[in-house]
Design a protein around this nucleic acid. Sequence first.
DNA 1: ACCATATAATTAACATGTTAAGTTTCGAAG
DNA 2: CTTCGAAACTTAACATGTTAATTATATGGT
Lengths: 172, 172
Amino acid sequence: MTDRKPVADFPRSRLKDDTRSLPIALLRAREAVMAYFRPHHRKGGITEQQWRVIRVLYLEGEMETSRLAERAWLLAPSLSRILKDLEATKYIKRRPGESDSRQSLVSLSPKGTAMVTRVAPFLDGIHQDIARRFGPGRTEQLLALLDQLESALASGPDTRRVVQKEGGRTRK
Amino acid sequence: MTDRKPVADFPRSRLKDDTRSLPIALLRAREAVMAYFRPHHRKGGITEQQWRVIRVLYLEGEMETSRLAERAWLLAPSLSRILKDLEATKYIKRRPGESDSRQSLVSLSPKGTAMVTRVAPFLDGIHQDIARRFGPGRTEQLLALLDQLESALASGPDTRRVVQKEGGRTRK
DNA sequence: ACCATATAATTAACATGTTAAGTTTCGAAG
DNA sequence: CTTCGAAACTTAACATGTTAATTATATGGT
């Protein structure tokens, strides 16, 4: 791979184009999808990431910061800033951990719960709209492939990121 | 939506879980993929976005900023900052437009070209590694679905983002 | 030529991504 | 009880995402 053919025109042809590069293809696809959701998030006065946090708290109830970061797919520093804002706007409540005062337990406030029940139907509608445009079958197929891709790469070169630790968990 | 059934437990069951929400599924998949590429970008001393810019210039040669933003899937403000840095580090060159002095024409410097030919083989190897783990067939299938998804959503609610204008284009 | 409008690019302002460093608290070893 | 390393967060610092506002230049119409 250090010496190929002629010269001057190196691997140029081996560089993946936009439809064959996974990073770019996934970026484009997510961008296309988010174009549908973003306006509605803004209408609710929150960001996409703030919604991810609120959504997890609604689904699973009070939990500590580290677990919340995993569930919302956010890095700890980002979550730290987001929680500060969400607390200031009264969407969440915090209290110190009971057995471990290092951690802080986060939960949804009534205002936060109300926001979910108000916004969720719209988001569900958007998802249905997307599934209708793309086709329900292909949507399911895509979701399955994405899940399988993540599983296939899980044992990769550097698993320790959003999911910091975990030895051999079982989904929960 | 103001009065539903029982109470207290609203659409909770209708909120998509992590494997059925397209935004989250795409986020997770991209995160899993980028975990493989990120270390190599850092090794080259550039960011993922800077690589996207350099890659496009290598593939397509000199072009104006607005076109480069489309090609690299970056928003104009991000690209503006990135170009300032890449120019400072001598990876690119800039000159004013010939017929339109508002625009600035960007091209790869010899140092930038050298960087591509040095890094590209590694990135190609990573892509092959991923395809091997996930399976070549499923990889192709996934890439096809992602491309189809973007097409299906293209006529959506707000096409005017990265691709600012364009009325009825034909790919180019 | 003059002007209103549109366009190319940048700048501004704020939120998040990302890595590293710093703080406080636990827990185990001695 | 003291010390030391790990853990849970938080801060710091810099790059990018995101929307809005600015600046400079083009263009079409009068």
